[in-house]
Write a protein that binds this DNA or RNA. Sequence first.
DNA 1: TCTGGGGTCCTAGGACCC
DNA 2: TCTGGGGTCCTAGGACCC
Length: 422
Amino acid sequence: MTSLFALVDCNNFYASCERVFQPQLNGKPIVVLSNNDGCVIARSNEAKACGIQMGAPLFEIKDAIAFHGIHVFSSNYELYGDMSRRVVLVLSEYSPHVEVYSIDESFLDLGNFLDVDIEKYARAIWERVPRATGIPVAVGVARTKTLAKLANRVAKKSKKANGMLVLTDPKHIEAALKATEIGDVWGIGRRYARKLSQFGVNTAYDLTRQTDSFIKKHLTILGLRTVKELRGEPCLDLETMPPAKQNICTSRSFGEALTELSDIEEALSTHAVRCAFKLRKQKSCAMAFTVFLETSRFGQDSQMYFNSRTVRLDSPSSSELVILPAALEALRVIFREGFRYKKTGVIVSGICPANQVQQSLFEPDTRQRDSNLMKTLDGLRERYGFKSVFYGVQGTSGKWQMQNSNLSPCYTTKLKDLLKAN
DNA sequence: TCTGGGGTCCTAGGACCC
DNA sequence: TCTGGGGTCCTAGGACCC
């Protein structure tokens, strides 16, 4: 029995989502910006052709935007999240085992599809997803996940493949490995790419020719796994049930620099509430959390400051009534007058399943009461949005709120949007 | 003036224990 | 004077992913 994986990757996903609802932008250059309209996180092919780089700060490309008439969007994660669900729904028609790897990528298990012409099958997926959702995709198929990733890349780049490639023939695999730069291999980042090139290892093919001990020494056992996968030996399984997260971080940069503690408290309390909500959503409790506060990391004139404080809880909790006041207390400890702050956030850690939590002996049992209240609050939030109920400390000044001046409407989830406005 | 927000895992080294 | 060896836990730092 041989394994077979397909990697389906949405092309320029965020840009494609925007285009589904503004088809007049087909063929036009589009970029989508990060939170706070900071830098470019998605580009249509036309924008790439204009020379816009991934991660480019908006202020650096203002001229290019004007010159080429590039359409600019703030990121709209509600829209992208909903489009992503639609794509996954279509994919699940093609395999009983789908791993949603990220918002725009899924692995499909095509092993045991014995009587199926895989070439035809992959092409069917490639055609069907855009027809059903409006989102164009690339499909790469191979014996290991890492090779499927590589096949997907080649499928996108090669004119001949035109967005779909089944990479199982050894001769084709070798050619693909030779055509793939080391830094484009899944699992090899910038640092490793630089290090490897010093040893004369420049392509994925070069990498497969190294000894295991060399790889393990310089790239740890994770790198060795990558190399084995490139050689065709499956080391990674499909993960259809994502494990509960071990850390959950909620943070945002402020729309503008803040100096007042009370403004920062509004932001942090909002993040703390959201973070506790995420924790409850995955049915977990946390043993500890960290609050951090920082100035801009880029400022030259103003002084930089970063500080964090970790708080251990007496017993694991997911209650806002526990986390929120303690988070604010931690913030007041690390806050210093006289800095221009740019970001704050909270990270919960030491996560365990909620049903395994033991009551602390010396604590009054407020757990049940809290849990009932949280259930009620979460119900309201899911139905009417996060603005429907909030604590006084979260405030209404919203001075910390992000900039998103080019936000598109939530086309697919509008009802929720309307309810939120009330 | 303006530079995102999430996550994962591994390794090395120190503290501490028997 | 001799002053081993093995284990666990924790943390910081460094790498990676989207």
